[in-house]
Design a binder for these strands. Structure first.
Lengths: 141, 141
DNA sequence: CTACAAGCTACAGTAGGTAGAGGTTCAAGC
DNA sequence: GCTTGAACCTCTACCTACTGTAGCTTGTAG
């Protein structure tokens, strides 16, 4: 039986995070010693490792909860798991696209900045130049 | 003079968000009507548009606070602004790299998933397969 | 048997907002 | 001038996914 600190080290999780996962029902309440300290078994280790791995892949805790539910009912179709993973992939790709647009804009901004004082600074100027944004909202709404 | 709702529409911001920005000191306290409603001028509109634009570029509110401080002291060097923008670019690029790794992993996972039932599901299997992760933490710590 | 590391609970705080309750004010139409 | 209702007000709580702290208790190595 493992103490919470051991479990934390083995999975690269903070102790508080493990207690948090228990609190929100992602991890089952473990057994306790007479003194009230949590003791974990290998099933808990597996489950926590699964959660951490999925978190590293960017799944939300809600998605992970779904995956765990599916995983607990092995007779159901793999397609449901597939849907969740596909959704996650879509989200990741959307985020990448957005960040790439930001990168382009930031680079453009920096390329144009070569003045000496702030009153001439292109970076601030670009950030301040909201002509297009205003137009967007005014026509949009 | 603009009411808060008008300012919100013109900048694509929620009313609550404007009040939140005021609360944390990003926007100055505006004038009020006799009845206590906020009234804004063009300077406020510009400042808020600047904030929103910078947010769209992924700057944190703290970074924006710095940029606004620099912008309020036009005699200081553009280099400081440049540093903040470069830092932001680095962060964006790091996030892109991380997300691209996730995308690769998710795609690989999905490509291998063609079984019928969950007990054979590759997605769950991959998430469950923490051998490498455990090794990492065990050797690392 | 004694230190003290590690555990415990409970609460507060983080970023960046968003939502709702319950009450007041502004402005347009009659 | 009066009414109506949309928009405003404050205050509080909530969201995600944790992290940190205070003050106390337990487990274990020497």
């Amino acid at each position: 039986m493992l103490a919470i600190g051991t479990l934390a080290k083995r999975t690269g999780t903070k102790v508080q995070t493990i207690r948090y996962y228990e609190q929100i029902g992602l991890l089952p309440e473990p057994g306790r010693t007479e003194g009230g300290q949590r003791r974990y078994g290998n099933a808990d280790l597996d489950r926590l490792a699964f959660i951490r791995h999925a978190r590293q892949l960017g799944f939300t805790l809600e998605a992970i909860r779904e995956l765990l539910n599916l995983s607990d009912n092995p007779s159901r179709s793999c397609a449901e798991v597939d849907v969740i993973a596909h959704r996650q992939l879509k989200e990741v790709e959307a985020r990448i696209a957005r960040l790439e647009a930001l990168r382009t804009e930031l680079k453009r901004m920096l390329r144009e900045c070569s003045r000496e004082t702030i009153s001439d600074c292109r970076v601030l100027e670009v950030l301040r130049d909201h002509g297009a944004c205003l137009a967007d909202h005014q026509t949009g709404a």
